[in-house]
Amino acid sequence: MTGITSLTQTTQDDDLAIRDLLARSQEAWNRGDGTAYGACFTADASDVTFVGTVYQGGAEIGRAHQALFGSFLSGTRLHLEILDIRRYGADTAVVVTRGDVAKKAPRRLGKLATYVVVRGADGGWGIGAVQKTQHRPLMEAVSFRVQPATRPAEG
């Protein structure tokens, strides 16, 4: 039983570390700190924004976001809710979140993001990729009505 207990504890510890990573990225965003935001990503990370821009690498992600924090995103806060963490081996996880960016608390979290997080050589977790999508409830409802088989299974 000790092996199972330590495996369960390791998984729980890793899930906490992954949650902490996303919380650090959120805190960096909320401070308008592009350098700290970029540091949450791996050196070879990909960030696909909801408008379709692709940034490569933590340094570029941080640099670009610092420019955004100084203009379009000035004073905004990242609101984030983790919906699911799925582990794929000991060193990789996919995290699905619901969130939004606004100066005040949004009425609803209208964006979804899928993160791939990876364990680095130092044992810490970093964001290897993120892709953001605007949720379109009306289009989704039309799709489900026209073709009910497209509705996801209840989780």
Rank of each mutant, 00 (worst) to 15 (best):
T76F: 13
L16D: 05
R98E: 08
L78G: 01
L73V: 03
G58C: 06
L21N: 08
L16T: 08
A59P: 00
T5E: 14
T42M: 11
G110R: 02
I82G: 03
A141W: 09
L21C: 02
T97I: 09
K132Y: 13
V116D: 10
P148Q: 00
S143T: 13
H135Y: 13
I82T: 15
L112Y: 13
K111Y: 14
S6R: 12
A149R: 15
T150N: 12
L109M: 06
L73N: 05
T53N: 15
T42K: 06
L22N: 02
C40G: 14
E81H: 10
V54D: 00
A105Q: 13
A43H: 13
T5W: 10
A113K: 11
D20R: 15
D44C: 04
P106F: 07
T8L: 15
R98T: 04
D20E: 15
I4P: 04
G3D: 15
R77W: 01
G124T: 12
A43D: 15
M139N: 14
D44V: 08
A45L: 05
G57C: 01
V146Y: 07
S74D: 08
S25W: 02
D44G: 06
A149K: 14
Y88A: 10
L80P: 00
L22A: 03
D84S: 13
L16K: 11
D91I: 01
T8R: 13
D15P: 06
K132C: 10
L68I: 06
V54R: 03
L80D: 04
V95A: 01
G70T: 08
S74G: 08
I82N: 02
Q26C: 11
Y115A: 01
V130R: 12
A113Y: 14
A113C: 12
L109K: 04
W29C: 04
V54T: 10
Y37T: 01
A93Y: 06
L112Q: 12
T53H: 14
L80Y: 03
P148E: 01
M1V: 09
D20K: 13
D33Y: 04
S74R: 15
L83T: 07
T5S: 09
D14C: 04
R98M: 04
W29K: 07
N30L: 09
